[in-house]
Design a binder for these strands. Structure first.
Lengths: 154, 154
DNA sequence: TTTCATGTAACTTTAAATAGTGCGTGAAAG
DNA sequence: CTTTCACGCACTATTTAAAGTTACATGAAA
């Protein structure tokens, strides 16, 4: 299956926006993400509606973070992009008449629901502030490393 | 993303084979699963290699279960079909140069690996014998129910 | 009033699962 | 020994959802 990278993508975008301070345009963000500006607008649309980011048109416009990073969890972001399905596997048929399939579905559903619940709980425990802190720690580690030579895009 | 239903499918097929007792041809199984015989052969190929089922050519041939249902877990079946990825989401880029993305990936990976581990552990706890027992319980419940009228395919 | 930037709809491309075709192989029936 | 049955496998086609792209409208600042 083609794996959905929207969550990964939005988190990346949000952290870049937070680092920047000033409003960033969809074009700038698209460059940093190596994707298309429209994809950025689409992906940030849900976050705007949820109140996590703000967008401004015209000169000097662009995207800004509307809340403190400490007040946004990965779970919030996941919800804001529309809660895409987390599991790559599903049942062959939902609501099958075949009792064998019902038994199989029940067993699989139990496990999948448990795994999803765990995942969402973990998402809820991680704030963007923590991710930003991890990023800064990596920055520090790189700048003191003797082999540090890569640069940061965006 | 398109959700993978191979695990669901193969469990379904195995239980039907177990119910039958006698060898079942790919055509029969395909009818029961409302799919193509080749799909059945493909899906059962991995299980044959893993020793869970046996296939016989020619007249009177077909597929049979090669082990006791109590000795096959959902985890075994998952492994036999090639351990397809369980999570529908992935990182935008593996091994990114961008430190922001590294921080995001690390956080997501932690959660995903935990959820996958839980899922596999649960799979390992469920045997096909348990699924068959659940199926029989559903059979009994249906036959005593006043509204029982659906039939079992296959 | 021109330029910049988002908002959105429609369309195209791409990746992965699933479906299907054709032909080869081997075993049993007649 | 030849026909029929059934799996084995390589290859192609279809389908679905994500991702990418184009086109144009809207609204704000220079």
């Amino acid at each position: 299956m083609k794996r959905d990278s929207r969550l990964s993508g939005v988190l990346h975008v949000l952290l870049h926006m937070a680092e920047q301070g000033a409003p960033m345009t969809s074009d700038q963000l698209a460059k940093a993400m190596q994707t298309h500006p429209v994809v950025i607008r689409r992906i940030l649309g849900g976050l705007r509606d949820a109140g996590f980011v703000h967008s401004e048109k015209g000169h000097g416009g662009g995207w800004t973070i509307a809340k403190s990073l400490a007040d946004i969890t990965m779970r919030d972001v996941y919800d804001a992009i529309g809660r895409p399905s987390l599991m790559a596997m599903g049942n062959r048929t939902e609501a099958p008449g075949c009792l064998v399939e019902q038994a199989v579905n029940a067993a699989l559903d139990t496990s999948f629901l448990e795994a999803e619940a765990l995942l969402l709980a973990r998402f809820g425990e991680v704030t963007l502030a923590q991710l930003a802190a991890d990023f800064h720690a990596r920055m520090a580690a790189r700048s003191t490393s003797p082999t540090a030579q890569e640069h940061i895009h965006g």
